[in-house]
Design a protein around this nucleic acid. Structure first.
Length: 956
RNA sequence: GCCGAAGUAGCCAAGCCUGGUCAAAGGCGAGAGACUCAAGAUCUCUUCCCGCAGGGGUUCACCGGUUCGAAUCCGGUCUUCGGCACCA
């Protein structure tokens, strides 16, 4: 099975290449430039990724068939530490990694070379380019391939950042980032590119509350600073040894793990000793803002790894606290062991502080009661906390006991109270990850303060306005995203754009310690593709790519001679490149997966808006959703569910391309389904065989020829209209389903005219070329056309004939009605007699059409008008009855549809088709005009049932 | 929580913006027939329910509204999914 298609595919790919279809150069023709957002090379891709890439190639090919000069460059993104860690794991012969590489088709001997990060990048560049994109028959200009780690690309990137600096969009300020102690800042996200554990962790912003206790401060971390008025006691884990640290002039008590986190975020912290948790219990401490002294109680749930390992207790609104307090009170003996008297224990009672809809005085008590939570450590506490917080945050209101915050909504009070406590020195901010995060290198990741972090200021108002205006003029699909993108642009704020640490990427031009971050270095790059081949082919070197060079080539600045002088690039070549950029830009279409909607696409728009002039602003964005696995996303990191070359061998590239194009709207996730892919592949085989049959046919011309040409013209127009909005699926529908089934009908109907067939096939095969180019070439050849269909133009729609299409639909309706009747009456398929409508009915319809106003047909007027005709008057009350029917029809159907019914010569159509209808149904068919007196006789009176578009049928 | 998207016949999936030709495309699956030594290949027909003359009935998450007319417009309810920022 494997390899069934491969040889054929390679043959055509070579022919395309030989014909120069992969060389996109400036010409006089209108241009179309498109890209897909290049992928990161952090491993093998899976079959799902080919979906969006296939849309791109199909759209590019379609634009070629309209005569456009198309540029469709590809590249890869390798910034980051993905390649570093993969190379490291390969070098260490990590078993899972080796298995992953081999399973995906990496030759075992190749592993030897992949201990070096750049070797890994180059290896995958080859895989992506050759095993994925070339293998799929993409007509890309391979000379222009680029990668974010190439030296010339870096020069471009540094130029981009200089332009951002010139525009005043680079700023520095402190930033809190997840960071590894040895690798520097890392990305914490579910794809776990940088980390080996904890991709779902979130950064929580805790408020550190300081409780004076003798000469110490017990420091609790809370996510709910608005509850301080409800503090009634303080929790310390008796079995934990806490650290004492000096902070400014104070001595703080926090857990040991918290010290390590705090030093990354605060200056001047010095660890000076320890204190046992149990030694603190039973003391009193002073609760901030609440202004009361509260006792320190023991609690096992205080986890030294969470926050500071010390917890303030608000039993009114914290399920944990209420449960622990009740447990403590239920066991006075335990408390006594810590020197806590029963009086002290009983003096601690919850204070109601927040009024919440659906809850009583003590919301926490209500929820633990209703959820049946009885003891500390119950796993349901997590959910209880979430529910309570959600219900209270928006709807809750602070009660009178909360001083100046009484009456405030919880959501407002939270920030106000936190800020007030920070201002008074009672509190500080502390950020911590919600779960354990481990770097790829094995070290724990924590939040680190970076004082001089560089940002791109996407919050800049002028920039946002410019990007927003551009977005309004762009062709963006789906339309939901076109609406949404404005919100995304205004929601975008400053974005960290460079990082420190062991990373592959471009050096930040204003400070070599920094490396430009992975999203920021891939926003303006389509512009670079317009000249990248000059660098790839050695006509210019990275050294020559100075600021003046790019300013001149891309922005038309500076004197050409002077730039040539400075860079050593010949003036003629500079001119070439400037022309290239001017010709190809703006980018017409950028296609990317839905994950780009809130990250890459807005950054792409912003950076263009910041740097290039209006005439170079991008024109289109298309978002595609995913192909998923049976259980969620097909995972790249979990090892390819289905290596792409293997799938291509099994189904054929075109079977897969058709699957992507047609299985569903691009704007919906689809589950990968091998049976469906196989069935598309078989459909292509079938179509190819059918093309062979068609090519060998000959026979006389018939009325059905006109019908076929009209249908093809209709499909051609429909496909063109759909592709205006890049709707590849509609194109597939028109070509592989609608046109195919019409051609089958044509043959079934006895059509054999070689001229008609050839004309139809020229359009048909060209319509298939964008989606299934290899098979289309096979068909093109089988049909006897010269040259390559990949280079052919889609014929203009012509030969559209509504009358021909109507006539054939009448025949099909009649066949359908006859077969339905015969099925109903069971057996009797003998003779079928058809009676066309009485001519006066046609007159009624024509009169109705002429009298139709905006309110429809005036029934009384029309009736009067008809009854004035002496011939019609003879028909009696059949006339007003029919007038009503016509009026109803005209309200439901467009006038043109009704008009077609009376314009057609039904009798002639049915007489011509009688033989065919008879052979289809296995019966004898006769046709009679209802006006014929003999027909009246023969129909037994049934002829009166006939109306335009629906002859009377009598089966005998 | 915030923002966004979606719920259509056995399954997948069009249609919804621009209300009527919608019992609702197409594919898959299933059934019948044809062709064949045969077939998982191909072709034809059927596939919500009822009906011995082309018909009728009840449907497009649920409830209500607008309209001569709603899968399509409006309001509400329930459910599912995605994004929420140094992952392209």
């Amino acid at each position: 099975m494997s390899g069934k298609y491969e040889e054929m595919e390679r043959k055509w790919q070579k022919r395309w290449s030989d014909a120069g279809l992969c060389l996109s150069d400036r010409s006089d023709a209108p241009k179309f430039m498109l890209i897909f957002a290049y992928p990161g090379v952090t491993g093998y891709l899976h079959v799902g990724h080919m979906r969006g890439y296939t849309y791109a190639d199909a759209i590019g090919r379609y634009m070629r068939s309209l005569g456009m000069n198309v540029l469709f460059p590809v590249g890869t993104h390798a910034t980051g530490n993905g390649a570093i860690s993969l190379a490291k794991r390969i070098a260490e012969r990590d078993p899972a990694t080796v298995e992953y590489m081999l399973d995906n088709g990496c030759p075992p001997e190749k592993l030897e070379e992949l201990g070096d990060p750049m070797a890994v990048v180059e290896f995958f560049n080859g895989v992506y380019r050759d095993d994925y994109w070339r293998r799929f028959g993409f007509l890309s200009d391979w000379r222009r391939f680029t990668c974010t780690l190439y030296p010339d690309y870096s020069k471009f990137m540094q130029w981009q950042f200089r332009k951002l600096m010139d525009a005043g969009l680079l700023i520095q300020k402190p930033y809190y980032a997840p960071a590894c102690p040895s690798c520097g800042p890392v990305a914490v996200d579910p794809s776990e590119t940088d980390i080996s554990k904890g991709g779902n962790a979130e950064t929580n912003e805790y408020t550190l509350l300081k409780f004076a206790c003798g000469d110490l401060f017990l420091v609790a971390a809370t996510l709910r600073p608005e509850t301080v008025y409800g503090q009634v006691c303080f929790w310390v884990n008796p079995d934990v040894e806490y650290a004492k640290i000096r902070k400014g002039g104070e001595v703080w008590v926090v857990s040991e793990p918290a010290v390590g986190k705090l030093v990354q975020q605060m200056d001047g912290i010095e660890r000076i000793g320890t204190v046992r948790g149990r030694d603190l219990i039973g003391k009193m401490c002073s609760a901030p803002m609440a202004g009361r002294d509260i006792p320190v109680f023991p609690a096992g749930f205080c986890d030294p790894d969470v926050g500071t390992g010390l917890v303030t207790s608000v039993p009114s609104d914290s399920p944990d606290d209420i449960v622990s307090l009740m447990a403590l009170k239920a066991d006075p003996g335990y408390a006594a062991g810590f020197g806590i008297s029963e009086e002290m224990l009983e003096s601690v009672v919850p204070i109601s502080i927040i009024k919440m809809e659906g809850y009583g005085e003590l919301p926490a008590l209500d929820i633990v009661t209703s959820m049946g939570i009885k003891e500390p450590g119950d796993p349901k506490l997590e959910e209880a906390k979430k529910t309570l917080y959600r219900d209270g945050f928006h709807a809750g209101v602070m009660k009178d006991v909360c001083g100046e915050y009484a009456g405030m909504r919880v959501s407002d009070a939270k920030d106000a109270m936190r800020d007030a406590m920070i201002a008074s020195g009672d509190a500080e901010i502390f950020r911590d990850l919600s779960e354990e995060v481990v770097c790829r290198c094995g070290k724990p990741v924590h939040i680190k303060r970076i004082d001089d972090q560089w940002f791109i200021n996407y919050a800049d108002e002028a920039l946002t306005a410019r990007a927003d205006a551009n977005a309004s003029t762009m062709k963006i699909s789906p339309p939901e995203y076109a609406n949404n993108v404005h919100g995304v642009l205004s929601w975008f704020r400053e974005r960290a754009c460079a990082r420190l640490g062991n990373w592959l990427g471009t050096r930040f031009p204003f400070d070599e310690r920094w490396i430009i971050e992975a999203i920021s270095d891939s926003t303006l790059y389509p512009l670079y593709y317009t000249v990248s081949h000059h660098a790839n082919e050695g006509r210019i070197t990275p050294d020559q790519m100075t600021e003046a060079f790019f300013d001149h080539v891309f922005l038309g600045r500076g004197d050409r001679g002077a730039v040539s002088e400075e860079t050593g690039v010949p003036a003629a070549l500079l001119g070439e490149m400037a022309e290239d950029a001017r010709y190809w830009y703006p980018l017409d279409l950028n296609i990317g997966g839905k994950e780009h909607m809130t990250v890459h696409f807005p950054a792409f728009m912003f950076n263009h808006a910041a740097i290039v002039p209006d005439r170079m602003l991008p024109r289109g964005i298309m978002v595609n959703w995913y192909i998923t696995g049976k259980s969620g996303k097909i995972s790249k990191s979990k090892g390819g569910a289905q290596p792409i070359p293997g799938a291509a061998g099994k189904f054929g590239v075109d079977g897969m391309r058709l699957y992507y194009a047609h299985i569903a709207s691009p704007f919906a996730d689809v589950e990968w389904d091998e049976d469906a892919v196989m069935s598309y592949a078989q459909r292509l085989d079938r179509i190819l065989a059918f093309v062979g049959e068609l090519a060998g046919m000959s026979g006389p011309g018939k009325p059905i020829d006109g019908w076929l040409l009209s249908r093809m013209s209709t499909h051609n127009s429909a496909a063109r209209a759909a592709m205006e909005g890049y709707d590849v699926r509609q194109l597939a529908m028109a070509a592989y389903f609608d046109a195919y089934s019409d051609l089958r009908w044509y043959v079934r109907r006895g059509g054999r005219d070689p001229g008609t067939i050839r004309e139809a096939m020229r359009t048909w095969i060209t319509m298939m070329m964008p989606i299934t180019p290899h098979m289309a070439e096979e068909m093109w050849e089988a049909a006897g056309f010269d040259g390559l269909v990949s280079a052919a133009l889609l014929p203009e729609p012509s030969g559209h004939s509504p009358a021909a299409e109507y006539g054939e639909s009448l025949v099909r309706d009649v066949i359908s009605d006859i077969s339905k009747i015969s099925r109903m009456i069971g057996s009797g398929s003998g003779k079928v007699s058809l009676f066309t409508y009485q001519s006066w009915k046609g007159d009624v319809v024509r009169k109705a059409l002429s009298m139709m106003g905006p309110e429809g047909v005036p029934i009384p007027d029309l009736t009067k008008e008809c009854m004035a005709d002496p011939e019609m008057r003879k028909m009696g009350k059949a006339v007003p009855d029919y007038v009503r029917a016509v009026a109803t029809d005209l309200r439901r159907l467009p006038a043109s549809v009704v008009e077609a019914k009376v314009a057609a010569d039904e009798y002639a159509i049915l007489v011509e088709a009688a033989g065919f209808i008879g052979s289809e149904l296995g019966c004898e068919v006769s046709v009679m005009p209802a006006d014929d007196p003999a027909a009246r006789e023969a129909s037994g009176g049934k002829h009166v049932q006939a109306v335009p578009g629906r002859p009377a049928i009598v089966i005998s």
